Simulated scan of single mutants.
Amino acid sequence: MADKMLKIELKKSLIGRGAKQIATAEALGLKKPGDVTVQPDNAATQGKIAKIGFLLSVTEA
């Protein structure tokens, strides 16, 4: 596996967030606090993390 992978966990609730922030979280596969997903470390994923980074915990997988 040549590409790096990122382990992304939703730390805060999506209640009261804007529709775009909720859609970004769901695009990452996160729906409720505690959900974890593994995504490739690429420009698209980095952009999503930049939009809702304050809701997430990101580590290398």
Rank of each mutant, 00 (worst) to 15 (best):
Q39Y: 01
I49W: 07
T59H: 09
L56M: 13
N42F: 10
P33M: 01
T45D: 07
D41I: 09
L55N: 03
G47D: 13
T45W: 10
I52Q: 02
V36D: 05
G53P: 05
K51H: 12
A43V: 15
K51L: 14
G47W: 11
D41K: 07
G47I: 12
N42P: 07
S57L: 09
P40N: 06
E26Y: 12
K51Q: 11
T59R: 12
A44G: 15
A50M: 14
L55A: 08
F54A: 05
I52D: 01
Q39D: 03
A27S: 15
V58L: 05
V58N: 02
G47A: 14
L56I: 08
A50W: 12
Q46R: 15
A27G: 15
K31S: 00
K51M: 14
G53A: 08
G53R: 01
D35C: 00
F54Q: 06
D35I: 03
L56P: 04
D41M: 05
E26S: 10
T59N: 11
L30S: 01
T45G: 09
G47Q: 13
D41P: 04
F54D: 07
A43R: 14
D41A: 08
T37Y: 00
G34D: 05
V38L: 06
L30I: 00
P33Y: 00
L30Q: 04
T37C: 03
K51I: 12
L30K: 04
K48S: 15
I49T: 07
A50S: 14
L28Q: 06
Q39G: 04
N42R: 11
I52S: 04
K32V: 05
N42V: 10
S57R: 08
E26P: 06
G47E: 09
